[in-house]
């Protein structure tokens, strides 16, 4: 069986001939497209480590079949920084020591980027804690995560225009 899909990942167009309908978006990224920054923690949509943005929305990529991603625009952790310049959420995570082992971090950051973009976070720590609770951090870096998301959210609000982390619209064909 072969299924052709075309999707944009971090602004780059990929035409993929899928030889297996069972491949998840997460495994497509990690095992077939050499983008292992997105992590697998549970493969059941329970931990959030695999969070990516699909058409700007946060999803658990372990629960999405690659075959359903035809035409999608996907942003992963590898696509946030502009060259050497970190996305404000990434910079805030370092500043606030919002991680220890770093394994859940890509998912935490993608969730944070998503919810800030959606204007969900506001300036309320309780709200941030709730909204970030789909991403488990076993090391327990939650205090730093909450501070980092609040700070990045404030910065995003100050710069009235949208974040310039990554162009979600891929134009350079593969």
């Amino acid at each position: 069986m072969s299924l052709s899909i075309s999707l944009a990942i971090n602004g780059r167009q990929h035409d993929v001939a899928l030889n297996d309908p069972r491949v998840t978006l997460l495994d497509l990224l990690r095992e077939r497209l050499d983008l292992p920054g997105t992590k697998k923690g549970c493969d059941r949509g329970q931990c959030g480590a695999c969070t990516v943005l699909v058409d700007g929305r946060r999803i658990n990529s372990c629960l999405a079949l690659a075959a359903s991603m035809d035409g999608a625009e996907i942003t992963t952790i590898e696509g946030l920084a502009e060259g050497d310049e970190l996305h404000p959420v990434q910079a805030a995570f370092i500043e606030h020591d919002a991680f220890q082992c770093g394994y859940c971090t890509p998912g935490q950051i993608m969730s944070a980027v998503g919810l800030i973009k959606e204007g969900m976070a506001g300036d309320d720590p309780e709200r941030v804690r709730e909204l970030m609770s789909g991403n488990i951090c076993r090391c327990g870096a939650y205090q730093g995560i909450t501070e980092a998301v609040l700070e990045a959210g404030r910065k995003a609000a100050e710069n009235a225009q949208p974040q310039t982390g990554n162009p979600d619209t891929g134009k350079d064909a593969a």
Binding site: L35, P36, T76, I77, E78, Q90, F93, I94, I109
Partner: peptide, 27 residues
């Protein structure tokens, strides 16, 4: 001091064991 491996960890460039994919890999 902030973590020296911070940049690698927030950009997805930190390589954990299962991120490796040598040529000819079997699962």
């Amino acid at each position: 001091v902030s973590r020296r491996d911070g940049r690698l960890k927030v950009t997805g460039a930190a390589t954990y064991a299962a991120d490796n994919h040598p040529e000819g890999l079997l699962h």
